[in-house]
Amino acid sequence: MLQESVLIEKNEEIAPGLYFLKIRNEQMAGEAQPGKFIHINLGTIYDPLLRRPMSILNAQGETLSVLYQVVGRGTRIMTRFRPGDEIDVLGPLGNGFEIEDSGQNFLIGGGVGAAPLVFLAHRLPKKGVDNKFFLGMRERELLFIKDFLPEEVEFFSSHENSPRGEAKQVTDLLPPHLKTKKKTSLYCCGPEGMYREIAGLCNDCSDFSIQVSIDRRMGCGVGTCLGCAVKVKKPPREEPQIVRACVEGPVFRWQEVNIDGT
């Protein structure tokens, strides 16, 4: 974990409203893990005030990249970062995904939030394992993500405007793949409703584990402001407890966060 001034290598619009930001810092890149995030100071001298948490899209050698969608004032300001500029970055923060020893790995993403799964795809074991990436999109705006994936990862996608009979939601893609006896690990990034549906589909399956990345409004990113509270139930404790998405998360086991058991 560092607070560093880092050099921007790239900040390009790679699809309408979607930007690819690449920064250079050897130690940060070295400490990066799939599911962790970096906390970017916008350099606006306090308006907008807070840093912006961004999932790590990939990290190699001395560089680290994120994918962001322009949704508000903060991300609009980020589009003005130029190669050669320096920005103040905190991180990597959070816990990241736990890579499990499974017969197959399903990476399931909804929208631009799928970015950390790209990083994960690069870190999964390759031999004797089936790695599949499922991506749900509104239209086809995120198809470029396929090009970021390692070759051996099978790619499937759905779009909300698909013709009749084709997958509209990412969860429409899953059922045929779930008929398996192999031990399967699911790694999910998207809205919480999507997690609930995925868990529902896996209900009758035997050997599945589900990890999900939980999205919360964040303040400090390091665990002091207590803004990003997540209610979890972790055995052996029977009472739910409040933990921080930025420290104990953002990745949780689905059964830990699904405390009402629905």
Binding site: L49, R217, G219, G227, C228, A229, I242
Partner: peptide
């Protein structure tokens, strides 16, 4: 104390609103 539920922190013009609730 487990603090307040729902959204606890919101960014405003040059500031933030919080309602952590003494967690």
């Amino acid at each position: 104390r487990s603090g307040n539920s729902g959204i606890r922190i919101v960014e405003t013009a040059a500031g933030i609103l919080n309602s952590i609730g003494l967690q």
